[in-house]
Design a protein around this nucleic acid. Sequence first.
DNA 1: ATTTTCATTATACATACGGCTAATGAAATT
DNA 2: AATTTCATTAGCCGTATGTATAATGAAAAT
Lengths: 207, 207
Amino acid sequence: MKSSSRTVQKEATRAAILQSALLVFSERGFDGSSTRDIAAHAGVHHALIKYHFGSKDTLWRAAVTFLFERQAAEMSFDMPPGKLDTRQQRRDYARLVLRHYVLYCARHPEHARLMMQESLRDSERLQWATDTFIAGIARGSERFVRMLQREGVLPDVSVPALVYIIVGAAQPFYTLAPEVRRVWGIDPAADSVIAAHIDALLAVLVR
Amino acid sequence: MKSSSRTVQKEATRAAILQSALLVFSERGFDGSSTRDIAAHAGVHHALIKYHFGSKDTLWRAAVTFLFERQAAEMSFDMPPGKLDTRQQRRDYARLVLRHYVLYCARHPEHARLMMQESLRDSERLQWATDTFIAGIARGSERFVRMLQREGVLPDVSVPALVYIIVGAAQPFYTLAPEVRRVWGIDPAADSVIAAHIDALLAVLVR
DNA sequence: ATTTTCATTATACATACGGCTAATGAAATT
DNA sequence: AATTTCATTAGCCGTATGTATAATGAAAAT
């Protein structure tokens, strides 16, 4: 583990490019983003993108990998915190998971923004992202939804439709924050607004 | 009202460019779309875009105008079909409106795709779209939601949050259709899948 | 039949793009 | 102190972009 001043600076540059890529890709999409813009926003020369990441495509994949690894780190709900014997316990668990998911969406709106842009049309990038990350998360979501259906917390309807209803109820309020600010005059980044959105989402989804 | 063969052909060309612009803008966003791509997809020379629409920006505005005028034409629910005296009548009206909105999203996924791309970040285009179209629709949605809240059909929580929950529950299943196909192996354009999604959405939202 | 109109095409231009090679220079190594 | 390493920068290449102007030619008007 080298930590010479040059290595530290190198990693800082790499991280700056990655964060800049997250922002630009999430706001303009892959085709609409330019490596020169990403480099300029990171304050480095555009040739460094090839040096650190190889190509625009590889940089995009590195950005997506960062997003899903962070999500996995911040949303580790594979094992419920306690026992889930009673219906009330499962309801509370559902509320807990949904609350944390909404908070994640509010904290990191660029995640859903970036993936949404890529899911609008089929592509090799979408195929890679689904195979590498999304398919596994989808299976976890399916188990989560089916458990809540068995318990009567969610209605017994199409599981894929339910998953997209839940995710769609959570994400757009934050991914479309610029529109929300202009149209409704409120800021989805404010804690009180987030709390109100969580209350609304739980009131609608968890019965 | 001229209808000479030249005028007819001119309008056909204009319409072809507009439809092509809807598709390309909705899949790649404004910055990711090129006027040459749009023209090639419409089968015309790219200089015709300047001739018929003035500029890329004006073409985008014409496309958005087309989308919202079509939505207004296909979603004329300002006046309920019958009287809304009883709670059951208001529930039925809510179901009717939501069903038709989901069907609109399924029929024309490019509408939400295009607007979503523009709502991810603030811009002059977003400002124009919100001032010209979205603000008015938002006020209508607010009235709709408040009526259902008074009747106990929707919970008494934050109205903007509820609006985005409803819209988010309806749109992504169709805007993100390529992802749905890859991850779940189902086609959100199929009638049976749409019907299942409507059932799920109504079961969750209308109590 | 001749002229005019105008939808369409050809072409040009300055800029921006992704990707690449060579040069640079400070830190690390010898 | 001399040499090597390598993160960073400068600059070029072929292509693509948005926009503008001139040329074309068939339909419309005279």
